[in-house]
Design a protein around this nucleic acid. Structure first.
Lengths: 206, 206
DNA sequence: CGAATTCGATACCGAACGGTATGGAAATCG
DNA sequence: CGATTTCCATACCGTTCGGTATCGAATTCG
C-alpha cells in the first residue's frame, strides 16, 4: 500500500520524526516564545522553508511537539492509571513524575508548564492550549479515581475530582521546583508527604 | 530634612509608586518577555524616556516590580509565619495563598511563577532570579518550621526543609491551576487534602 | 532522455522588539 | 528676570522576530 502512494519529485531528505524530537527539546527548554525559528531549525538541522513545508508554521509545530511529548514523555501517566488500586495509581504517577522531571538526558521540568503560562494576546492561545492539555490528564485521573470510589477502593464520600486535582497540583508544583533546579531526592521527599494525604481503604497496606 | 534636599529643575510629574503598581499588573498578567515596553508605558501612563529615567531599564523595572509584589501581594506569607503553631502557620499560608491567587481585583495566579519559568540565554537570568525569590520564601518557612520542631510543636524527626518544600510545592501547583482558571473553591479543596499530610503534635486540635 | 515536481539554501519582507538622541516646555535657583 | 536644570514627546536606532519569494539542484515519472 505505501508503494502505491509513492510521491512525485525529490523526496524529503530528513526524518520528520527525528526533527520533531529535536524541536521537543528546544520548546521544552525555552518555552514557546523563547524558542525562535532560528533556534528550532538549527536544532532540527533543517532550513526554515523545510520546516514550514513539513510542519506548517510555529504554532502547528508546537502542537505537534506537545502531542509527541504527551506520547513519549508522559507515557508514565497512562501506565500509572493501570495500577490495581487508587493508592498505587497515585503513588506510581507521582513517583514516575518525579523521575521524569529530573531525567539527566532530558530538560528539567515539564514542557506543558514551562511551554507557556502567562497570557497576553496571541500568547494566551498557547497558555490556554497547554492548560487544556493538562486538564485532560487531570480528568483521566479523576475518571480512574471515580471508578475506584465506585468499587469501594476509596472511602465512600471521597471526591475523585478533588483528589485528582490535588495530585495534579503536587505534580505541577514539583515541576516548578524541578525547573528551578531541585534534585530528584527532593521531589521524592515531597511525594512522601503528598501521599500521606491520599485516603486509603482501611486495612489495606498497598 | 526632605525640605533641604529639594531637587533642582522641573519636578517629576507622575507618581513613581503608582506607575510601579501599574507595571506590577502588566508583568503579572503577561510575564517578563510578554510585557513589551509599549504595554508597560501605556499602562503606567508615561513615555519611554520617562520610564528609563525613573527606573533604569526593563530588567531594573522588573526587579522593582517583584520587590513591590513581594511587599504588597505576598504580605500574607510573612503574616502566616507569626501564627502560634506550625500547623496554623501552614494552614494560614495555604488558605491565604489560595485567596490571593483568585482575587477578582488582581490578575489570576502568581507573578513569581508566570513571570518566567523557562530559560534560554538572557531569559534564564529572569527565571533564575524568580526561582531564587521563591526559594527565599521557602527558606523562611523552613526556618519557622525548624523552630517548631525544636520546641516540640512538630513531631521529633520531622524534616522542616522537606515539609516547607512540600507546602511550597502545593502553593506553586495551586498557582499553576489558578492561572489556568481554577476557582477559589477548587484551590481550597486542594488545600483540604494537602493539610492532611501535615504532621501534628498528638492531642492538639488546632 | 525529457518533463514534471519537489527539494533546500539564500536572501529578503514588514513588524515589533528594547533602548536612545533630540529638542522644546516647565519649574527652580540666584 | 535670566540661567540652569530636568522634564516629557517625538522620532529614530540597530536587532530580532515569524514568515516567504526566489532559484538552482535533485529525484521520479513517462
Amino acid at each position: 500500500m505505501p508503494q502505491g502512494t509513492r510521491e512525485r519529485g525529490r523526496p524529503r531528505s530528513f526524518d520528520t520524526q527525528a526533527a520533531l524530537d529535536r524541536a521537543v527539546e528546544v520548546f521544552w527548554r525555552q518555552g514557546y516564545e523563547g524558542a525562535s525559528l532560528t533556534d528550532l531549525t538549527a536544532a532540527m538541522g533543517i532550513s526554515r522553508p523545510s520546516m514550514y513545508a513539513a510542519f506548517g508554521n510555529k504554532d502547528d509545530l508546537f502542537r505537534r511537539v506537545v502531542a509527541r511529548y504527551a506520547e513519549i514523555d508522559m507515557a508514565y501517566a497512562r501506565e500509572a492509571l493501570e495500577q490495581p488500586t487508587a493508592y498505587r495509581v497515585i503513588e506510581s504517577f507521582l513517583r514516575a513524575n518525579a523521575d521524569a522531571l529530573t531525567r539527566t538526558d532530558r530538560p528539567a521540568g515539564c514542557l506543558s508548564i514551562q511551554g507557556g503560562l502567562a497570557g497576553g494576546s496571541d500568547r494566551g492561545r498557547i497558555a490556554r492550549f497547554l492548560a487544556e492539555s493538562r486538564l485532560a490528564g487531570e480528568r483521566a485521573l479523576a475518571a480512574r479515581l471515580a471508578a475506584a470510589v465506585a468499587e469501594g477502593d476509596l472511602p465512600p464520600g471521597t471526591d475523585p475530582d478533588a483528589l485528582a486535582r490535588y495530585v495534579t497540583v503536587v505534580s505541577e508544583g514539583n515541576a516548578v521546583h524541578a525547573t528551578a533546579g531541585a534534585d530528584r531526592a527532593s521531589l521524592h521527599a515531597t511525594v512522601d508527604f503528598a501521599l500521606q494525604a491520599v485516603p486509603r481503604r482501611p486495612g489495606v497496606v498497598g
